[in-house]
């Protein structure tokens, strides 16, 4: 049964008329047309579909769009500002944080979520937080190095008042 769902996605308001069973993942990809968010395991385990819902990291593949009616959603398309890549995105490029790229949007969203709550994580804290984001190319050390470098860059920028 269709119903009205209002979502603010990356700062843009959307009013959608969609079935109650529509998953947030499918809503973002097919109703709104933002295909950066990926589907992989479909059961909330792998992290490829991670998005921020009112600032909290969610698995969009097991979230009903209707259940988050009225929320602000941030996807991978919404994190660069004025054409400048987010420091986490830049660090993934500079430090080999991805290979095939399928898991990367989820990895970047998870890393941003981590650094938002813990701006200076230890290696162990990065591993603990990121263990729910799988990379089947197994490039985990590149991801780890990228996040550590992004944290350092962001802390330097914050320290210099930029």
């Amino acid at each position: 049964m269709n119903q009205k769902v209002r979502l603010k996605v990356n700062g843009t308001d959307h009013e959608l008329d969609i079935p109650a069973r529509r998953l947030l993942l499918d809503c973002i990809r097919y109703d709104i047309g933002l295909t950066g968010t990926k589907e992989s395991c479909s059961v909330g385990v792998c992290g490829a579909c991670a998005v921020l819902v009112d600032g909290e990291m969610y698995a969009s593949c097991i979230t009903l769009a209707a259940a988050v009616d009225g929320s602000e959603i941030t996807t991978i398309e919404g994190i660069a500002e004025n054409g400048n890549l987010h420091p986490v995105q830049q660090a993934f490029i500079d430090h080999g944080g991805f290979q095939c790229g399928i898991c990367t949007p989820g990895q970047v969203i998870a890393a941003i979520s981590l650094l938002e709550e813990n701006p200076d994580p230890t290696e162990d804290e990065i591993k603990q937080y990121m263990m729910g984001n799988l990379c089947r190319c197994t490039g985990y050390y590149g991801i780890l190095n990228s996040i550590a470098a992004a944290a350092e860059d962001m802390n330097k920028a914050a320290g210099s008042g930029e």
Binding site: G44, M57, Y58, I62, A110, M131, G132
Partner: peptide
């Protein structure tokens, strides 16, 4: 429990 993402939900 599970992962931070699941624990958020």
């Amino acid at each position: 429990v599970a992962t931070p993402r699941i624990r958020n939900m």
